[in-house]
Every structure is written in structure tokens, then in C-alpha cells.
Design a protein around this nucleic acid. Structure first.
Length: 902
DNA sequence: AAGTCGACTTGGTTCGAAATAA
DNA sequence: TTATTTCGAACCAAGTCGACTT
């Protein structure tokens, strides 16, 4: 690519780095842990390097998992090549074989983490709160420590329980309940302790709810958990309720049903390669030999594993291995980062501390790629039944509209109105077309369907060829070199023109989103890097910047809202993103140390004489307990949704003696419906805030997000409202996993994880629309179960007969069935029963998850180290939980100590 | 103090490929 | 194999929040 020259520089550096002493490389890590095994590992590593001629190779590996080739150099073996780096991926395969081998390295190694921690810690200390707990550095794990801490920390919600859920759906209930079923008792293992007990806050409330609420779970833990969880409401409810809510907001009707559903029941795929590995850690801890392997010191584990077999409890041990294996791959990346870090590092690392915030030293990329120009199709729409000729521009926009024929937007007057405004402008004043309602876009729509069909019918070779062609064109845009490390670019494609699809009742839905040209785009690139060539001949970029305090590679103004921007950033797997992700979780963990005092402080302020203080206290309480979003002010030209600070009086209903019912549209116009029991002072305060106001007035009239965050910052450095969401989500996962994981096979453990994941999704109100085929799928399952039950009945009859020495009855077709022994029949009956039970469980899970989106929390709220550590402790292959992109995104978390607790 | 700008995270839906069921 | 169904990645809208203005 284009880059050449400069590139060199870069490369050079890299090389050095790689080889260099650099402090951190992934390899190292490995070694430490496994050492013994290492030998093998090492080899591997070495190879890599060789393989690719030096630097490049290193590059590549480093960051993304993908191939990299750097552009510049000659060397570039194509991307694919680098075996080494194989990213994360699957276990299965591949690459690994070699590496895998015996050893398996554990995952990654990152050194960095440590550093971060330190920082954070320091920070903590400085500040007031008493912190106290020690943090365990991830690395070392302190075994015991953890537990205690955690308790306190629990999510508020836990304290109280949520109460009701509206029953709408039932969903709520289900959650809990079902879980039980699935997993029958899971109690907590002894090892873990239950933290809950002590928790002060929780104490306050809690309890009560239990009974009634469906939600309440059995486990004690419940209490502590976030409230929300309880049942919840939200999701399901949604629909039904919509109307209601709408009153206030009137927005989003929710769903009509739509697509997807997935069931939760997933089956595990095969993946596991796992096997190998042992854990890495150094081990240090004391061990306990007991049953739980978890607790067992690493060292031991290792041993165990190594040899292979189980030691005591066989199962456990494995876990470690499993996890690691997959992980290892990821590691590679780290190296680079680190290198850089070295230099820069000090600065960088410090979270935020920093420096003015230099985000990078050298940045190289090829700019962005534009969508192809519009291709005329010549199909005419009918106006009053007559075909109309359109100019290319008019046709392009007409087609955008035609294609949306079967979407729900066609039922929205606002959408049509906005579309007509923009399209009629293109048609011009004297155009024949004067009324959208007289337009029949069917011919264009049908043409579109045909095109789609054609595409679908293409042979796989054709498809493949097309794909490769596309890849070839895009490849140079897919990568950037940041501080010498090749990193994937997130969205290098400029958004194509289209009609704006705002969510909920967005005032601008249907407006034309015009085509973006190079002259709209500002490029940000390293000072010494070559300026990307403008891909459209004859045109040029709007501007070129060299700002290393930001991470964007390019941006343009949003055509719908010119005051806003659309940015091109690096992909989630990049170290720049990984670093900030880690900082986010470290901040949330820091909150653990402060939470007790924060809760005590706001509790005290529930009755403050100062209204503002009281509002801040109550708002903070809601954010903490219900994981509400902050709630910034919105303009009139946006969908009218709310968050905590923007709640309207009508969004909260007081239900004596001390319950609050929330019903509002939040982000993306997703309805939040939840009824919770709150402390009396909160209940009373809300009542006061509501008196004398109308339903559409702000509940917290003395508050906005900047005031709230300014206040939070006084309590803990860097604390903002959103940190509570991260904290609540992660602490909930950590606690649930630790309490409920018990012995069992991998599939059972995965179910436990999914249950915890679901709990978090409910707390955060992460919803999805119901799949169009959901009901059909459910009825099909029901049918199958009925059928199986019939078979079962027949088997029982045959069994009776067989016992009496009679032959089985004829089957439905009248044919004679085989004569089976009573034993064989009994076995069959047992199998059929098991099958029926499994299907019923799967069905229940599917129903429960039909409106719950698990992915969002996994990507944004759950500290991946919790998951990785749990997988290591319980021998669950990490790829059962994280897919390929998550593995890449969380590469920084892969080397966490198995004893890590949030 | 409020409003605006700017950068970056969070979030649901869509699209297409992969996995399964038929 | 074919038809689904499931799953992951892409997409891009919609939030959060700090900094800078007015």
C-alpha cells in the first residue's frame, strides 16, 4: 500500500521492539507460567518470528488476530500466513496443534495489567474512603480475600428485592424459577463463602420481598443481587404495557413481534480443544487442598493437569487447562503493545492519568472506502397507475423508500412525511408527482426482491469469488498501524446513503441521509505518515489532521444532524480499545471499595433538608439499585426517551406502602417497567418530588447529569453514573458464578453461566424483539413433546404386555413391532423420559429468553476477567462462552489469575 | 451556570454465513 | 441436500460525559 515510506520507519521500530528487550511480550508470559512446558512454547514463538521475517511477523501477531500483513514491507506474506498469531480462535483447530501440544500455554500474559492495577489502587488510596480491602492484584490471587469483600459490594438491588414484576409476561418469574429447574440445587459450594450475609445494606431491605415475588430466588444470594433482577418486568412486559407507557412517552410500541428468538438453549458446540493447559499462574497461594480445586493453588493444579489426570476431583483441574489453551493465542498481541508501552508506557498506562492524553505516537492508515455509485435500474414506479420517468437521483431515493415496503416504518406517518419532504425537493416544484399516496412503488419493490433472489441463487463459487473481490478491494483499509502495531480498523466503510431509521418515535425518521463524499471527510493520521490517497478520482479530503490526543482515524458530519459526527475508530480488538476497556472495569472495581460509604452517604441524604441533596441522593440510589442510565437532556428533534435525571413524574408511581413502579422508555426507546420495594425514606422523597407537578414535569427538577456526576466525583475519583451499571453487572456475575457453580459437566456449567448472564441482562434491561417465528417454534416443540409422550405411553403398554409374556401391540401402521425384553423397554422408557424432560427445559429456556438479549452485557458490562477466571477454575473452555470476536476483544483479560474476583 | 462541541461507549437490528434439522 | 434455524459480524443509532464557550 500506499503507505510505504513512512512505513519503514515504523517497521524498523517494530523490529527492534520485537526482538528487543522489550519488556513485555506475550511470550514471556507464557513462560512464566508454564514454564516447564514451555519449551515447546518457546519454540513456537521463535518460529513465528522467523517466519515472517522479523518484524512483520511480529506486527502481525501482535494485535489483532488476524493476519496482518503489513502493508508496507515487502515481506508481507500475505495475511494469512502468520500462523503464529492465530488469533484466538477456535480451539479446534488449527494452529494450535502445534502449539497446543502438550503444553498449552496458558493464555496470555500480559504484564500490563499489573500496572494498571497499581494505578488504580493508588488512586483509591488517595482518596478518602476507606477502602480497605486489599485488592488483590489479579495476579496473585489471594484466595481468601476475595470473598469477603465482595459481599459488601453487592449490588444494591440485592438488598431489596425487587418486587414485582409485572407479570406480564411471566417472564420474570420464569427466570428464577426456571433456573432452578435447570439446575437443581446448586447450592453454593462450600468453598465460597457467601458473602451476602454481612452486607450491610442489603440487610436493610432485602428480605422481604422474597416471598412474594416471583423473583425471589431460592438462593440466598438472591437477596443481594441486584434488584432488578427479580423479575422482571421489563422485557416481557413490555408489550403489553406499551400502551400505557406510551402515555407518557408515547413512543415505541414495541414490538410487534419480530424476529428472532433464540433459544437459549444452545448446545455446546464442539469446540473444545481445550485441553491442554494448565493454569498459569504462579501460584502462590496457599492452597487448600480441598475439594474445590478452585481454591487450590495453582501450582497444584498445574501439576495435576499436567500429568493429566485428575487428581482429586478430576474435573476441576481440567478447567484450567481448557481455558488457557484457547487463550493463548490471543496473547501475542500483547507484545507489541507492551513494547510500545515501554516507551510510552509509563505515561500511557497510567490510566487516565495522564498525560494530556496522548493516545498514540505514530498512526498510519489508508483512509476510508466509499460505497459504489448508484446504479440505475430503470424500473418505473406508478403514479396514479401510470409509469413515471425519474432522474437517477430521484430514482435512487425512490428505491430507498420502495425497498422498505414491508417494514413497520411504512405504518408511520412521520416516516412518510419526512421522506416526502426530502424526495419532493428532489422532484422539483413542477413534477408530476404531487402526492406520495398516489405513488405505487411495487414495481421497484419487486425488482428488489428479484435481485435479492438472484443473489441468493448464485452458486457458491460465484459467491466466493464475489467475496474475495470485495475483500481484495477492502483489505488495505482494514488495517492501521498504531505505534508500530498493526491493528484492525473498526468501520472503514463510509455509510451509504439511505433513509434515516431512527428508533422509537424519532422525529427525523425517513429523512434522506445523503451520500458522503471525500470532501465531507476529515482524516486524522500521524504527522509523518503519508496521507491516504482519496479513492474517488478528482475529489479530495476535506481536511487532514494530526491529532494524537484522539483515537479516530476519520470523521464526517452526520447528514441527519450536522452538528454531530460519525467517526472511524479502531476495532474492539485493538489495544487502544482494550486498554480503555480495562480501565473501565478497573474503575468499576474501584467502586467496590467506595460503595459502602457512598451508600451510607446517600442514605443519610434521603432526608436532607436541602432538596437538591435529597434529589441527588434518591437519584444515586436509583442508579445504584436499578442500574438506570444517567439521563442526559435531549433535544426536541430526538426521540423522547429518559434516563434517571430526566424521569418524569408520570414515569414513577408510588404504591403504598413502599413500592415504586417505573414505566418509561429508555435508550433506543426500550421500555423499562419494574416495580420495586424501596426504603421508606426514598418512597417518601419521591412522593414529595411529585407533589404539585404534572405528569410531564421532571421528577428531579433540581438535577441534571452534570450536577449528579460532579457530586459522584466527590465521592470517588472518576466516578460517574455509568460506572454503577458496570459495577452492578460485573459484581452480579461474579457472585452468581461463585455461588452457583457446582460440580457437573461443562454443559451444566455453561447453563449456570447463561443464567447469570441472563440475570445481568435483566438488570440492565437489555431486550430484543421476539422472533417472528418464535410462536411457530414453540408450538412445534410442543407438538414434538406430545408426540413423545404418546410414544412413552405405548412403550409402557408394551412393557406391561412384555412382562406378561405377550407380544407388543401393533404400531400405527398395523405392523408388528419387534419383541423386546422388559429390560430393553424400560431402558427405552427412561430414555424417552429424559428426552421429554430435556425438551421441556429447552422450551422453557427459550420462552424465558425470547425478549432478553444476553450479548450486550457480555460485550459491554461484564468484566471478561471474571469469565476467564471462572472458566479456568471450572475447566470450561473459554470458547464456550466467548466467540471469536469476544476473544479478540478481550485478549487483554486472558491471562488473568484463576482466582481473580471482581 | 447553562449550552455546545466533541469523542467515545453502548445497543438493538440487520445481513449473511455456519450449523442443524428435515 | 435442502430448508431452516442459529449465530456472528456489521451497521449505525443513541447514549454518556468531559471540555470548552458564552
Amino acid at each position: 500500500m500506499a503507505v510505504e515510506a513512512p512505513a519503514k520507519h515504523v517497521f524498523d521500530f517494530d523490529d527492534d521492539d520485537d526482538d528487543g528487550p522489550v519488556v513485555f511480550k506475550r511470550n514471556n508470559t507464557l513462560s512464566s507460567k508454564q514454564n516447564q512446558l514451555n519449551s515447546e512454547v518457546k519454540k513456537a514463538s521463535s518460529q513465528r518470528s522467523d517466519g515472517h521475517s522479523g518484524s512483520l511477523a511480529s506486527y502481525v501477531q501482535a494485535s489483532n488476530g488476524q493476519s496482518s500483513n503489513s502493508q508496507k514491507n515487502k515481506a508481507i506474506p500475505s495475511s494469512k500466513s502468520l500462523p503464529v498469531r492465530s488469533p484466538i480462535l477456535s480451539p479446534k483447530a488449527s494452529t494450535s496443534s502445534a502449539r497446543t501440544s502438550p503444553v498449552k500455554s496458558p493464555v496470555a500474559n500480559f504484564k500490563t495489567p499489573a500496572s494498571l492495577n497499581d494505578h488504580s489502587k493508588q488512586a483509591l488510596k488517595q482518596h478518602k474512603c476507606n477502602i480497605v480491602k486489599e485488592e488483590k492484584s489479579p495476579i496473585k490471587g489471594a484466595t481468601e480475600t476475595n470473598s469477603d469483600d465482595d459481599d459488601d459490594l453487592q449490588p444494591l438491588s440485592a438488598r431489596l428485592k425487587g418486587i414485582s414484576n409485572q407479570g406480564t409476561k411471566g417472564a420474570s418469574t420464569s427466570s428464577t424459577s426456571q433456573s432452578h429447574r435447570l439446575v437443581p440445587k446448586t447450592e453454593i459450594k462450600g468453598s465460597t463463602k457467601d458473602p451476602d450475609d454481612e452486607a450491610p445494606l442489603p440487610v436493610r431491605f432485602n428480605m422481604k420481598s422474597s416471598p412474594g415475588t416471583s423473583s425471589s430466588k431460592l438462593y440466598d444470594s438472591d437477596e443481594k443481587k441486584p434488584l432488578a433482577s427479580n423479575g422482571e418486568q421489563n422485557g416481557s412486559t413490555v408489550k403489553g404495557k406499551q400502551e400505557k407507557s406510551s402515555m407518557l412517552s408515547g413512543k415505541r410500541p414495541l414490538d410487534k413481534g419480530n424476529s428472532l428468538d433464540q433459544s437459549s438453549a444452545k448446545k455446546p458446540k464442539i469446540s473444545d480443544t481445550s485441553t491442554a493447559m494448565k493454569s498459569k499462574q504462579l501460584a502462590v497461594k496457599a492452597e487448600k487442598a480441598d475439594e474445590d480445586d478452585d481454591d487450590i493453588p495453582i501450582s497444584q493444579r498445574i501439576k495435576k493437569s499436567t500429568p493429566t489426570n485428575s487428581k482429586t476431583s478430576s474435573m476441576k483441574q481440567k478447567a484450567a487447562k481448557v481455558v488457557s489453551s484457547s487463550l493463548k493465542k490471543l496473547n501475542r498481541k500483547s507484545k507489541k503493545e507492551f513494547k510500545n508501552s515501554k516507551y510510552i508506557k509509563s505515561t500511557k498506562v497510567s490510566p487516565s492519568s495522564g498525560d494530556g492524553q496522548k493516545k498514540w505516537s505514530t498512526l498510519l492508515h489508508n483512509g476510508v472506502i466509499f460505497p459504489p455509485p448508484y446504479k440505475l435500474h430503470g424500473i418505473k414506479l406508478l403514479y396514479d397507475g401510470r409509469p413515471i420517468d425519474l432522474t437517477p437521483e430521484q430514482e435512487e431515493v425512490a428505491t430507498m423508500f420502495a425497498v422498505m415496503k414491508d417494514t413497520d416504518y411504512m405504518n408511520k406517518p412521520q416516516f412518510k412525511k419526512n421522506f416526502w419532504e426530502d424526495w419532493s425537493k428532489l422532484l422539483g416544484k413542477n413534477h408530476t408527482i404531487k402526492d406520495l399516496d398516489k405513488c405505487d412503488f411495487t414495481p421497484i419493490y419487486e425488482w428488489h426482491l428479484q435481485e435479492k433472489e438472484k443473489k441468493k441463487q448464485m452458486s457458491s463459487e460465484e459467491k466466493k469469488a464475489l467475496k474475495e473481490e470485495k475483500l481484495k478491494q477492502e483489505e488495505k483499509y482494514m488495517w492501521a498501524i498504531v505505534d508500530g502495531v498493526k491493528e484492525k480498523v473498526g468501520n472503514f466503510r463510509v455509510e451509504p446513503p439511505g433513509l434515516f431509521r431512527g428508533r422509537g418515535e424519532h422525529p427525523k425518521m425517513g429523512k434522506l441521509k445523503k451520500r458522503i463524499h471525500p470532501s465531507d471527510i476529515t482524516i486524522n493520521i500521524g504527522k509523518n505518515a503519508p496521507i491516504p490517497e482519496c479513492p474517488i478520482p478528482g475529489e479530495s479530503w476535506k481536511d487532514i489532521k494530526h491529532d494524537n490526543t484522539v483515537t479516530w482515524l476519520a470523521f464526517w458530519n452526520d447528514p441527519i444532524n450536522p452538528k454531530e459526527f460519525k467517526y472511524v475508530f479502531l476495532a474492539a480488538s485493538s489495544s487502544l480499545k482494550g486498554q480503555s476497556d480495562k480501565e473501565k472495569y478497573e474503575k468499576a472495581r474501584m467502586l467496590k471499595e467506595y460503595i459502602r460509604n457512598i451508600r451510607a452517604a446517600y442514605t443519610k441524604d434521603f432526608t436532607s433538608k436541602d432538596v437538591t441533596k435529597r434529589q441527588i441522593a434518591v437519584a444515586t440510589y436509583l442508579i445504584d439499585k436499578l442500574a438506570l442510565r444517567a439521563g442526559n437532556e435531549k433535544d426536541d428533534d430526538e426521540a423522547d426517551t429518559v434516563g434517571c435525571c430526566t424521569l418524569k413524574v408520570g414515569n414513577v408511581e408510588c404504591i403504598p406502602p413502599n413500592k415504586l413502579k417505573f414505566d418509561f422508555l429508555g435508550k433506543d426507546s426500550i421500555q423499562y417497567v419494574n416495580t420495586v420495594e424501596v426504603e421508606l425514606p426514598v418512597y417518601n422523597a419521591i412522593g414529595q418530588f411529585q407533589t404539585g407537578k404534572s405528569k410531564s414535569d421532571d421528577l428531579f427538577d433540581k438535577l441534571d447529569t452534570s450536577k449528579l456526576n460532579a457530586h459522584l466525583k466527590e465521592l470517588m475519583p472518576g466516578l460517574t453514573a455509568k460506572v454503577f451499571r458496570t459495577y452492578n453487572a460485573s459484581i452480579t456475575l461474579d457472585e452468581m458464578l461463585n455461588k452457583e457453580t457446582k460440580d457437573g459437566d461443562v454443559a451444566e456449567k455453561v447453563v449456570i453461566y447463561q443464567r447469570a448472564n441472563k440475570e445481568v441482562a435483566i438488570i440492565c434491561n437489555h431486550q430484543r424483539s421476539i422472533s417472528k417465528s418464535h410462536s411457530a417454534q414453540m408450538s412445534r416443540l410442543t407438538e414434538k413433546i406430545t408426540e413423545l409422550k404418546g410414544v412413552l405411553k405405548e412403550l409402557k403398554i408394551d412393557l406391561d404386555r412384555a412382562k406378561k409374556g405377550k407380544p407388543p401391540l401393533k404400531d400405527a401402521d398395523g405392523k408388528q413391532k419387534r419383541n423386546l425384553t422388559p429390560e430393553a423397554l424400560e431402558k427405552k422408557i427412561a430414555q424417552t423420559n429424559a428426552k421429554i424432560e430435556k425438551m421441556e427445559r429447552d422450551m422453557q429456556t427459550k420462552e424465558d429468553l425470547k425478549t432478553v438479549a444476553l450479548g450486550t452485557s457480555k460485550i459491554n458490562y461484564l468484566d471478561p476477567r471474571i469469565t476467564v477466571a471462572w472458566c479456568k477454575r471450572h475447566e470450561v473452555p473459554i470458547e464456550k462462552i466467548f466467540n471469536k470476536s469476544l476473544l479478540a476483544k478481550f485478549a487483554w483479560a486472558m491471562d488473568v489469575d484463576p482466582d481473580f474476583r471482581f
